[in-house]
Every structure is written in C-alpha cells, then in structure tokens.
Design a protein around this nucleic acid. Sequence first.
DNA 1: TAGTGGTCTAGACCACCCG
DNA 2: GGGTGGTCTAGACCACTAG
Lengths: 241, 241
Amino acid sequence: MLVQPKSLAAQVEHILRKRLREGVYPPGARMPSESELAAEFGVSRATVRTVLAKLAAHGLVLRRQGDGTYVNERLSQSSAHFGNLWDFNCLIESSGFAATIRLLKREIRAASEEEARALALRPGAGLLFLQRLFLADGKPVILADNVFPLTLFRVPPEAVDGTRPIRQLLREFAGREISFAITEIHAVPAPQEAAAFLRRELGAAMLRLKMSFYGKDSTPLVMGQSYFDDQVLHLSLVQAW
Amino acid sequence: MLVQPKSLAAQVEHILRKRLREGVYPPGARMPSESELAAEFGVSRATVRTVLAKLAAHGLVLRRQGDGTYVNERLSQSSAHFGNLWDFNCLIESSGFAATIRLLKREIRAASEEEARALALRPGAGLLFLQRLFLADGKPVILADNVFPLTLFRVPPEAVDGTRPIRQLLREFAGREISFAITEIHAVPAPQEAAAFLRRELGAAMLRLKMSFYGKDSTPLVMGQSYFDDQVLHLSLVQAW
DNA sequence: TAGTGGTCTAGACCACCCG
DNA sequence: GGGTGGTCTAGACCACTAG
C-alpha cells in the first residue's frame, strides 16, 4: 500500500492531512476508526495512533474515547496552526493569500553586544543582515529583519538567496535544520521604517515579533525582529490539550 | 515502582517534569537513556518514549538520534510554553510572579448577535459576563472580559466564583473540560477602560487577545477579550518540531 | 453489548553518533 | 562496535460511549 521514501507514519500523516485539506473528511465529520485506517494503509494500529495523536495535538481533529475521531470544524477561523507562526510564508499562505518576499537590504556587519550574546558569538563577529518585506497578494504585511552568523554559511554570503523562507535558507546555504524557536510578542507604536513600508501611520499600534531560532544542538542560528500588520493578516493560534 | 492513580505515562511525565523543574536534570545536561528510564520506572520503553516525545514537542528537551536526550537550556528566557497562553494564571506564575485575580464586574445579560453566533446560541440568550483584572505581584497586567452561556452552569450564576482561572471555573461549576482554544492576537491602542485599569496612557499600544474555548465535542464554552500589558509581563512562546 | 479510543508490553530492526 | 534514539509490529486489556 505504501512505499518507503520517509517513515510510514510520515506517509500516513501526509495522506490524512491531504484528505482533511481537500474535504475527503469534511469539517465536523467522523473519521474512520483507527483499525480501519490501519487496515487501509497496511500498517499497525500503533502507527496510525501516533499520527492521529499528532493531528489532535495540532487541533486538526478531536478524539473521544468510546466514540470516534472527528474533524475539527472550527479551524477555518484560524491561520497559524501551531507550527507556522515562525514561517511567515506558511502563515500568509494558510490565510489564503499568495506570499512573496522582497529583499530590501543585505549587509555584512559586526555583531552588537546584544546580538553577540543572543547568538553565542564574540562581539564584533561577522553577521549577515537581511531586511525583507513579506507581501500577501501583493500587499505588504510583514517587515522582517534577520541576522545570521557569517560562520554558519557554507557559501559566500553574497550567494545567499534573500527571497527564501528562513527554514529553506538555512537548509540550503548552511545545511542546518531548525529545531525550535522562541518568539516574543509585543505591541509597539510603529517606528518610521515599519510605518513607511507597511503603509501605516507613524505610531500606529503594531505587533512586533522577536524570534530566535535554534538548531538541534541548541545552537542559536538566527535572530529576527519583525513588524506585523495585523489589519490585513490575522495572527491566530490554535492550542489543543 | 509506580502506583496507578493515573496512567503510567502521566506519572512518568509528572516525575520527569518535576526533575526538570528542580534541576535534577540541569539545563543543558544529558538525560538518562530511554532504556534506563524504562528500567528505573519499571515500564516499557514505549511508555517512556511517549512521554519524552511530548516533552520534546513542548520544547523542554531536545533529542538527537544516536546521541541522547538533552535538557533545553534556553527555556529560562520564555514564559508561555505553548500550553499556558490561554491560562493567564499559569502565564503569570511561570514568569515568576505571584498571580491574583480581582473580580471587577459580574453581570447577567443577553447575548449580542456576534456573541450568539460565536457561542452557538440564539441571539438574546442569557450570558454570564465577568470582567476581571489579573495582577502579577500586585501589579495589574491583564484586563479580561469573559462571557459564558448561562445554560452551561449546574449552579446558579451567582454561585460562580469569579476569582478562579477559567479552566477551574468550567470544571467546577459547569463540569466541562476545555479541549482546545483559538486565540487571535492584535495590537491596538489602549481604550479608556484598559488604560485606566492597567495604568497606561490612553491610546498606548497594547496587546489584545480574543480567545474562544471549546469542549471535546467542539461546543463553544467561553469567549474572552483581554488587554495585556506586555511591558510588565512578556508574552513569549516556544515552538518545537 | 459492540465498537471506539486509551494504555501498555516485549521484542525487533534500523539509522545514527561517538570513541 | 556499542549505545542511542527512531520506527514498527502484534497483541492484549481497559474505559468509555452509543444504540
């Protein structure tokens, strides 16, 4: 039934997510039982269970002992499904817009004291600075500044494609995978630059996201500071327990 | 080794979280292997694995194939561990403050059209409205409005203790468990009421959180709108993959 | 009472990292 | 090579919900 490019569980998850997305299992509907799914895919019930547990943790489905697994019908309201808050491209696209990234600035400069501390570098170490504008259906929605340690890259920093999402950029040019991220969310009056690029009045209330991304070994990979126009793009999170 | 008040996995999780909290496994340290933990607790490796997977998903530990499981040392920076964003009491306490709730207003009124839609009621249905102020070490940090359908409660609405966290309140007075929540995060200029209670200037940039809580059967339980003073309390989220 | 999800086990094999 | 986490299985029993 299934071939093996990735794990069985990953394949099952991919198929189920696709069915949920395409409405094969419509919102509110009851899904097949664990045994039925296991039989259909030719895997053990345990494998199906790990997948369903993950989908439930992300709020896509609701499970009731003695009853069944149901498709969460309230997810249409929400954009950021737990794992795409950090990836603005995903966030924009899952809100139903077409996402594009425009590179505004690319500099190589020395790390400030704060940056050095956060990235576990010595002050003055080389950084690649990227300023980028994220557009949703052509409308500017996020202004993002990112700094990367130069030592991270396997290619000259000029070769780094600034129009890629961060995850891809790290994978492709640094051979690194993001393992976790810490995001701090603040409300601030729009500074001049953000107001200009996002077409808001100076001082208007805006969201500012300060993110740090780390690798598997807990190495700091990237820092970022972003201004987010929540009038166009809504920041909404699903949490499940 | 373990008695059975809850599931084995829940007990193991409780013990490991406690050890992490108390520094038995200090930040950055390598934890015992799955087999060692399984032997210590007298459970199968599979049971240990489900627990470690959960801790990893919440960002508490990092796992590396062929190497080991390590305590995430960057979590001290973060307050909201993606499971307590919705519970302001937890959020305040895990930021290191003492949390108290002050009940400002308690009303019984009819549902507006928007409220009725969101709570799946007919317009004009009875609601319990609570306005509450959350204090961190005595300083006001969150102003929260909540509306509950009156039909939810098993006791007269006057008997509902307005100084409890929402989860407890629903459990105790309605016999309901929260299954998931959807939170929308905006930056807005502080309205008069919020500015007054949170001691900020009128129009200052503030976070507004609009939350909806749902039960296992996807029933809407509560709606809330909260103003959050992010100058005292930081809103920071950990995400892991 | 039948069927569902919830829990747990024992064991197997693999992929990976390190010394 | 030895130990680690990653994957998967087959089967058992329990707790719960519905009809």
